[in-house]
Amino acid sequence: MIIKVISIIVLPLIALIIGFFFLGLSRKVIARIHRRYGPPISQPLIDVIKLINQESISHGKLFDMGVILSLAGSVILVLFIPFGGIAPLATSGDLLVIIYLMLLAPLGVALSGGEAANPNVSIGISRKMMLALGYEVPFLFSLLAVMTWYKTTSLVEVVKAQQSFLWAIFYLPLPAVAYFMILPAMLGIRPFDIVSAPQEIASGTAVEYGGRYLALTTIQHAFHIFIDIALFVNLFLGGGNLLTFFVKMLVVFLLGLFINAVFPRLRIDQAIKYCWKWPAILALVGLIIARII
């Protein structure tokens, strides 16, 4: 029980540190791919500290509550996803709960941005929703493939089954590839950053955010990166202990980052069509295979 409570407190902190490390790393790595020197890895942290100390504007109660809901929803997701075998709340919710809890963060941002009454926000939300509709198809296919293959909806069971023998990526390569292909879309980074395109719609949902709102959004983004990648590692790469889990996450993140660094941005309809074409077909074939065998 005490261990559980401690892990509930510590796990989000670890996730936060890893998330910020990834955020900083992404800026550094992308800079190096662009042949720049790049900021220090601690730069996202500096930014957040600056933002917390900066004044901001508020459009109303919902504007505040939405951001809080968004971050809180992301924080509790960490507790449901096993990190190196530690998942204090895995008995309270399975993969289905995780899929639904992933809703809270975008819902919070959307509500908060909606009250801001800026059309750029509305466009950003509508694009985010459409993109989500796009990537949910392959995402759900690959999740269902894993759940059908292991005949369970519990993420812990999935990880356990993989650790006793081969990783799921060897049984279900196609859903894994499909999941990896849509990972940038889930994280909202290039080539799928049309949602928050700064040049077109002035960074979309974040257009009215400044100061602490932006700080919370950045923290939420750090959690989000952690969650999506940890989910991939758990589903397909067999989890692992704390160290191997982190190494696997790093590998997946870097692979995704290389794609991020070299691709231009897709238009929203191109993004939807892309998501519904190759990743969806791959994941569907994987699901059919998993269902038949």
Binding site: R35, R36, G38, P39, Q54, P198, S203, Y209, G210
Partner: peptide, 22 residues
């Protein structure tokens, strides 16, 4: 802001809206 002089190493990045800028 791009590779030639790379303002990002000083922590300087362009943002889209004045709400986020300082």
């Amino acid at each position: 802001i791009t590779s030639r002089w790379d303002a990002e190493r000083f922590g300087v990045i362009p943002v889209a809206t004045p709400r986020q800028a300082n």
